[in-house]
Structures are given as structure tokens and as C-alpha cells.
Nucleic acid binder design. Structure first.
Length: 205
DNA sequence: CGGAAGATCCACT
DNA sequence: GTGGATCTTCCGA
């Protein structure tokens, strides 16, 4: 049967190896309700963070602090954190007990273009990547902050849905962004994107 | 308790 | 391509 694009992804969607989930999330929708308006982005870029064994992960070496407690929730919950004094980043938790998660790095506008643009305070018309071409931009466009940390991603006001799934042949991969400090893990190819999509963040894959 | 760094973005050269 | 903004979080002392 054909799944409706706005049917929520079930919790067990996330209960798989983090790399698989990172790839499978490409093409899916992020659906966000704000003041009864529905905003929709199609996910075009993700990154996998493996947890305890991954020096780039907030759960590296088994770290478990007040902030990173969210990484140890059951599958399909949100981990939203504040970074660089001004940005938020959204993750989907895998729930495997070692702190694995998928960072949502970029999305393409599907619904609510005008509100997305206003949230981002950018000129009209926006250029590709302006609205949600980066993890901080994506959260700003969707008005996501720490209030949504620990939110279950199969219910309003923030959910991930079936969207428009893609085949693995459409997926490009490469090293993750902004983790140069992570030693060997910095070169692991755990960044994934829809091949050639204009809304993917820089540098392009 | 202090200092350093950060899963980023933007303006400027 | 480079540097500044801005402040929470974390770790070591």
C-alpha cells in the first residue's frame, strides 16, 4: 500500500542502526505546527552521530550530563541543543542506549514558505539554502528551540512523516561538517544528502 | 569556580 | 576565505 506523505513515522522506524536511519530520513517531511499553521520541510541532508564510540558525538566516552540526557531517551524522541551562543540544532534519537542520534542538517520548503522566510528574516525571494540550508537555519525557520527538547517526534506540534522516500542511489555521502576536533572520527563518512539538491548546506557533497 | 570551546551563521575582503 | 557574534555547557583545578 502507498503511505500518505503526512503519516507519522512510527517509533520503531528509529530503532535501527543510526547510519540506516540517517539515510532513510532523507526525503521525509518535518511537519511543524505554529499558531495553527502547518510548516513543512523535506529533509535533504542528515548526519549520523554514533554515540559512545564517536568523538564528535555529545555522548562520546559515555558522557551523560543534564544536557545530553535526551540522547538516552527511547527511539523517535527529539534532542534539541543550543550552540555557539545563538543557534539550535535538531536531532532524532535512535534510542540504542549509547547515545546515537541523527542531526537534521537541511530541508527544502514544502509548505509555509512565507512564514519560513519571516522566521529567517531574509529577503524575498530567498535563494536556495537561505531558509533551511543548515542545522541552525532549519531550527530558526521552524521556530524550534529547547522547548521541543525531548518531544516525541510522532505527535504535534513537531513530527517526522513518510514524506517522499528516496532510493539509496540518490544519496551522496561524505565527512561531517564542523567536527575537525574529533580526531579520526572527523573523516568518517557519516554525512548524507540528496545528490545535487540545491538546498543542501555548504560545502556541497 | 573559571576558562575554553563549540554538530553555526553572516558580513566583509 | 576569514573573523566576529554570543552564551551555554563542560571539565579540570
Amino acid at each position: 500500500m502507498i503511505e500518505e506523505p503526512f503519516a507519522p513515522l512510527p517509533r520503531d522506524f528509529y530503532a535501527r542502526p543510526v547510519e540506516k536511519v540517517s539515510i532513510d530520513l532523507l526525503g521525509r517531511y518535518i511537519v511543524r505546527y505554529v499558531d495553527r499553521q502547518r510548516l513543512v520541510l523535506r529533509i535533504v541532508e542528515t548526519e549520523a552521530y554514533l554515540g559512545v564510540e564517536d568523538r564528535a558525538s555529545h555522548a562520546w566516552a559515555g558522557r551523560r550530563t543534564e544536557r545530553t540526557a535526551s540522547l538516552y531517551q527511547p527511539p523517535g524522541h527529539a534532542y534539541v541543543y543550543f550552540i555557539y551562543g545563538m543557534h539550535y540544532c535538531l536531532n532524532a534519537v535512535i534510542g540504542n542506549g549509547v547515545g546515537a542520534a541523527v542531526l537534521i542538517r537541511a530541508g527544502a520548503p514544502v509548505e509555509g514558505h512565507e512564514t519560513l522566510r519571516l522566521n529567517r528574516r531574509c529577503q524575498t525571494p530567498p535563494r536556495p539554502g537561505d531558509l533551511a540550508g543548515g542545522p541552525g537555519k532549519l531550527c530558526q525557520a521552524l521556530a524550534i528551540d529547547r522547548q521541543l527538547d525531548r518531544h516525541s517526534l510522532d505527535t504535534e506540534p513537531l513530527l517526522m512523516t513518510q514524506g517522499e522516500p528516496v532510493g539509496e542511489s540518490e544519496v551522496a555521502r561524505g565527512p561531517r561538517i564542523g567536527v575537525a576536533y574529533a580526531g579520526e572520527a572527523a573523516s568518517w563518512p557519516l554525512r548524507f544528502a540528496l545528490r545535487g539538491h540545491p538546498e543542501v548546506s555548504r560545502p556541497r557533497l
